[in-house]
Amino acid sequence: MGTTLIFTIVVLTGLGVFLAVVLFIIAKKFNVQEDPRIDLVEAIMPGANCGGCGYAGCRAFAEACVKAGSLEGKFCPVGGNDVMMQVGEKLGVAVEQKAPMVAVVRCHGTCDNRPRTNFYDGTSSCKIMNSLYSGDTDCRFGCLGGGDCEKVCPFDAIKINPRTGLPEVDQDKCTACGACVRACPKNIIELRNKGPKNRRVYVSCMNKDKGVVAKKACSVACIGCRKCEKVCPFGAIKVEDNLSYIDFNKCKLCRKCIDECPTKAIWSVNFPVRVPKPQEVADEVSQVIEKEQ
């Protein structure tokens, strides 16, 4: 009895010591030297692993930040300036401020605006559809409605509206990670300045066909008439290849172009509803009366 007990204790102790030594040797031999700051930076990251920064995930981004020693050209779109400030503090380097961005869908070819000319019967994927043909409408630049953007969005921020067949961005959820921008085979989605009070003005069309062709395919297509270009007091609008583009860095949100656009292809969002001045109302009323007479 006594010997069994002693024997057991000795064997177990011996085994314990032996294994401890083995573990120690292995830990020494395979020790990986890692900058402890990587863990610190990673802890600050939002942890979405969306790849919006251009790296494989939050850890990879943290590694890159620590290794590079500066934050130049590195930005976490999800965490925004706050997170980057914190990273800068931890690493003791300067941080460049960036204006917050948001994904903008530049197509308004709803089922009403842009009649379908054929029915797509394959797998619902923009990528497959785009490699097959120009799309189920006469506009070969517009949204295909396959929902690739919706599928890749890690934040549930972009959704196809079944009524219009077009994706809609939830600006509160969107972190401008750019996943949808990369997924869209027609390059319709663009990251644009979120703008003061979320107010934005943009051309909601990508059609580069000539005006007649574009207008025939879609009633709200940009026809490249250059009226907006002429009316813009800040030189923010350029028309190239029959398509207008508003540079959000130059645009001062005056909205002169919106009234000028004959096809209503320019859109403004989050502006308060414009209350017409009394004089304007009076003019309009008199016009209506005149017409009726």
Partner: peptide
């Protein structure tokens, strides 16, 4: 114009 079905082969 008649609307046709389109799909990959």
């Amino acid at each position: 114009m008649r609307k046709l079905l389109v799909s990959p082969s």
